[in-house]
């Protein structure tokens, strides 16, 4: 018996005259296609995966399960989990996004996409959607592990936490695009990674501001990293919304967003 024929492959020829005015795919499909393409690129890239997922997981488990660093509390997971969620946002919305955009800019990808029906607006929308998609994935993994480690977040604080995540994403994505749109690709790579390390160490993301030396503490609450960390800790530990931290994030978004709109260079 011969195997089934693979069908009449490729019998349809190209139409002889293709000159009807072409139309774009619907806006949602274009943005979704771009978001999925960007998310796939991150997930396929080893270094991006390390900074967005592997390191946050290691920090979550390491800080919750070991006592190498004195956290000054017995509820280690309760303190660490919100901070690691904040770090994950910083990884995806800032470091990973800045590097991807910086290299896409250098390689002419931004310019080419701007000539397709996606356009510049669709490109930005697709990037935001990709960041949110990746964050959803990160949250699923990190929250799952934290719950497994005995984390019991305050249920009343969930809407506040969601709001803080959105504000933090907006602020850090603005910073990513500002850097990616103004510096050379290699400089973007260096700055994005360096800032991630510096903010992790002393930016009030994972560890609360109170643990930093006196004068630094006040300054750090005004950084987007410190504000996002505090907003998530307040929401998930106390169940309340931190208006102060939210205002700081909003202010950063406005300033960085305006800077991006003015200074971003597409080529």
């Amino acid at each position: 018996m011969s195997p089934a024929q693979p069908g009449t492959a490729e019998t349809h020829a190209e139409p002889p005259v293709a000159l009807v005015p072409q139309t774009a795919a619907p806006w949602r499909r274009r943005v979704a296609a771009h978001a999925l393409a960007e998310a796939r690129t991150v997930l396929r890239n080893g270094e991006q995966l390390v900074i967005t997922l592997v390191l946050p997981v290691l920090l979550l488990v390491g800080l919750a399960r070991t006592t190498v660093i004195d956290l000054g509390t017995s509820d280690r997971i309760g303190l660490v989990a919100p901070g690691v969620l904040a770090l994950a946002v910083m990884s995806t919305a800032f470091t990973s996004q800045a590097i991807a955009t910086g290299f896409d800019r250098r390689n002419g990808v931004l310019r080419l996409l701007a000539t397709t029906p996606l356009g510049r607006g669709g490109l930005v929308a697709g990037k935001v959607a990709a960041v949110l998609l990746l964050e959803a994935l990160q949250m699923t993994v990190l929250v799952g592990i934290a719950l497994g480690l005995g984390w019991r977040p305050h249920p009343a604080g969930l809407p506040a936490a969601l709001g803080a995540l959105v504000l933090g994403t907006a602020a850090f994505t603005s910073l990513a695009l500002l850097i990616a749109g103004t510096l050379r690709a290699e400089a973007v790579l260096a700055v994005a990674n360096l800032l991630w390390v510096l903010l992790l160490a002393g930016g009030g993301v994972v560890l609360p501001v109170e643990m930093l030396p006196g004068p630094l503490a006040g300054l750090v609450t005004l950084l987007p990293s410190g504000a996002l960390g505090e907003a998530l800790r307040t929401a998930l530990t106390d169940g309340t919304f931190s208006w102060g931290a939210a205002s700081v994030l909003l202010a950063w978004t406005v300033v960085l967003g305006a800077g991006t709109v003015r200074l971003f260079r597409w080529s």
Binding site: A25, L113, T116
Partner: peptide, 23 residues
Amino acid sequence: DGGLPSTVPAGEALRHLAAMYAR
């Protein structure tokens, strides 16, 4: 200068652009 993302497989880059058009 090309304008295609460097870490994406060639076929996928093309499919991505194709998704922007109705036909």
